[in-house]
Simulated assay, not measured.
Amino acid sequence: MPPLQIGPITVDTPVVLAPMAGVTNRAFRTLCREAGASQGFYPGLYVAEMVTSRALVERNVESLRIVTFGEDETPRSAQVYGVDPATVGAAVRIIAGEDRADHVDLNFGCPVPKVTRKGGGSALPWKRQLFTDIVRAAVEAAEPHGVPVTVKMRKGIDDDHLTYLEAGRIAESLGVAAVALHARTAADYYSGTADWTAIARLKEAVRSVPVLGNGDIWSAEDALRMVRETGADGVVVGRGCQGRPWLFADLAAAFHGVTTRVRPGLRDVADAIYRHGELMIDYFDGDEGKGMRDLRKHMAWYLKGYAVGGDARRALAMVSTQAELREHLDALDLTQGYPGEDAEGPRGRAGSPKQPHLPYGWLDSRDLDAEFEAKLREAELSVSGG
């Protein structure tokens, strides 16, 4: 498959790590990049956690940490969320103008209530002029610095309020470098099966820039099948790599025609967990407690399918120090081999379809009323990473 071209950035392997709140920080991105590079190919794009435009403009410490990359990270990819064009433009100007990232992605895909009830994320493209203004502001802010802007979105709010084809055409006309579609609606949340036929339709509608597909990629074979069935120019991988950074080794191999797949035994998994812990402590500037607390959420994902008793799982989910982590990992039966498909498939809780939380009267019109427009600055979230 040909390389993925995102503006001036050429990516040998057409794979993107999706930004995930509380997951895709520098530590986890390092593990995924190392795995992908182990196949000898440039492994893909690895996008940082979402940063809110307001928080970034206000120079929030945690937001600035999110858009701080490792010395060996290249290209550096950041994702921005916002509902006010001026604030989004200012945030992108900071990222591009201060050389904080080489690529900016705009979030129009988040389905969580605290985002959609503000009119943001997957709710926002319903207001087409607002969507247009935000994308234009971001592209114009980034263009003088040669930083490409991409858009990640969902199909729409629900099956009766689809926006992805129109949004894709608008984004293309405004000069974005690529569009990515999570083939679910906001109402779908993460439930059911992703509608890959929507990716194919978007590919037919958007011709001049790459179209990337997202949703239900649990293996390298899934990624190849998505590209084959939809014509997508690449794939975006989210929940499928949680607790499985080595999935990027499989993806790199598969897209270059290599059949080798990584099938780690429990000792390999334990080594990955411990390295993840070291990287987390470094990410939090040497704060061991904070690093270990953040690592805890990953334990169930890493250990999925392996014969690890409940007591051991609970102990690992409560570690506070590196010494505790080492002790509990060494107590496992590290002679176990790969458990097969029990270690694969969906990660985390998919949940069930949900009625999207939207601003009052949001669906009454495709246009933005004056009252809500006046509230846009207040509606900006001030906390990044989720």
Rank of each mutant, 00 (worst) to 15 (best):
Q5T: 10
I6Q: 01
I9F: 01
T10G: 02
V11Y: 06
V16S: 02
M20A: 08
T24V: 06
T24A: 04
N25Y: 08
R29E: 02
L31M: 09
G36N: 03
A37D: 11
Y42V: 13
L45M: 10
Y46P: 00
T52W: 00
R54K: 15
L56A: 07
E58G: 00
E62Q: 15
S63Y: 06
S63Q: 05
T68A: 03
S77I: 03
S77N: 12
A78L: 07
V80W: 02
V83G: 06
V83R: 08
D84P: 07
P85N: 09
A91F: 12
A91P: 02
A91Q: 06
R93I: 00
R93F: 00
I95A: 01
E98W: 07
D99C: 13
D99N: 15
V104P: 01
V104N: 10
N107V: 01
G119S: 09
S122F: 04
K127Q: 02
R128F: 06
R128G: 02
L130W: 05
R136V: 02
A137P: 02
H145F: 14
T150L: 12
R154S: 03
R154H: 01
H161W: 01
L162T: 06
I170T: 15
A177P: 07
A178F: 07
V179F: 01
A183W: 11
A183G: 01
T185S: 05
A186M: 04
D195C: 10
T197M: 12
A200I: 01
R201L: 11
K203T: 09
E204D: 14
E204P: 00
S208Q: 07
V209Q: 07
P210D: 03
I217F: 02
M226W: 08
R228V: 00
C241N: 13
G243N: 12
W246T: 10
D250L: 08
L251K: 04
H256S: 04
G257H: 02
V258N: 05
V262E: 15
L266I: 05
L266Q: 09
A272K: 10
I281R: 01
Y283I: 01
Y283D: 12
D294L: 09
L295V: 05
R296V: 15
K297F: 09
K304G: 05
V308T: 04
M318T: 15
T321Y: 10
Q322C: 12
L325G: 10
L325E: 09
A331D: 11
A331K: 11
D333V: 06
T335I: 04
P346Q: 06
R347W: 00
R347A: 15
K354W: 00
H357N: 10
Y360S: 14
D364K: 13
R366Y: 08
F372S: 04
F372L: 15
E373K: 11
A374C: 10
L376F: 08
L381E: 11
G386A: 15
